[in-house]
Design a protein around this nucleic acid. Structure first.
Lengths: 148, 148
DNA sequence: CTGGATCCGCAGGGATACTG
DNA sequence: CAGTATCCCTGCGGATCCAG
């Protein structure tokens, strides 16, 4: 599985649009929105309730971004009160598997990563407290200045 | 390939650490650093040159974050001038394939997405220009204010 | 109900200068 | 060479209010 379709090495000009996309995909809310929609279309309020912590503003912006990229469709029912359904497009559905792979990786590694982080932070704190407060080398100069 | 190891549906509490990781992974520079290191260990300056547009600050922070997560190792050679090598850990190497999948997806879809975006933006601009400049309903009030 | 518009705090991140 | 420290500014994103 070493398909060299994408050139990872010297990606001077090829990378820019790619990272542009990856940043959008890796976005905090985008992942969760796609996850929510992966099971079928949902109304705005349903997504809003399902993704805890997102603000209306961010949800709207995220959905609009996904719509702009052709990853979700937005269907308006001109009823009262209005109703808007969101669903993944075919293109959007092709993202489910790649994201699922990443999701699985995160799921499998999160405990180990958490522990590694703790160990790292602890070591860092110990080093910081053991450092005997390096004094500025200008202290001597400052002292000579005293009786000036 | 519908391994339901991770629960996508009601991820009230389970999602938080996961998105935490995914945000870190999806980070603009993280992806590129891992890509650069996927072929072998590199010195700081080599990574710096290879990733166009990154600042020293961001590269350092990104590498430190990856080290904290146990995804890269940092090896110091106390020579003069100093030399520091970075390399993926075993855990870091397990990330190559998931990222490669995502990378491939981005590579295959970037043209289509670019075009979809242009079409979307163009339609949006047209609608905006065709809108007959909705005047604020307070204009009348403002007018009455004129001869006060 | 589904957003749009606005205000605003604060952190992300670039540029620069300095150190070991 | 490989960072660290500082300044500074942009824009992300939350809170709030308003409109269709």
């Amino acid at each position: 599985m070493r398909a060299e379709g994408a050139d990872h090495g010297n990606c001077q000009e090829a990378c820019r649009p790619l990272t542009d996309i990856l940043v959008r995909i890796g976005d905090k809310w985008t992942v969760q929105v796609i996850g929510a929609l992966s099971k079928g279309s949902l109304r705005y309020s349903q997504i809003f309730k399902q993704i805890e912590g997102v603000s209306q503003r961010m949800l709207t912006l995220t959905l609009k971004g996904l719509e702009r990229d052709g990853l979700v469709t937005r269907t308006i029912y001109p009823t009262i009160p209005p109703r808007v359904d969101y669903a993944l497009t075919d293109r959007g559905r092709t993202l489910i598997e790649p994201l699922h792979v990443l999701w699985t990786w995160a799921y499998e590694n999160r405990d180990a990563i958490d522990e590694t982080r703790r160990a790292f932070d602890q070591r860092r704190d110990e080093e910081a407290s053991s450092t005997p407060r390096i004094l500025p080398r200008y202290e001597a100069a400052a002292v000579t200045r005293r009786a000036d």
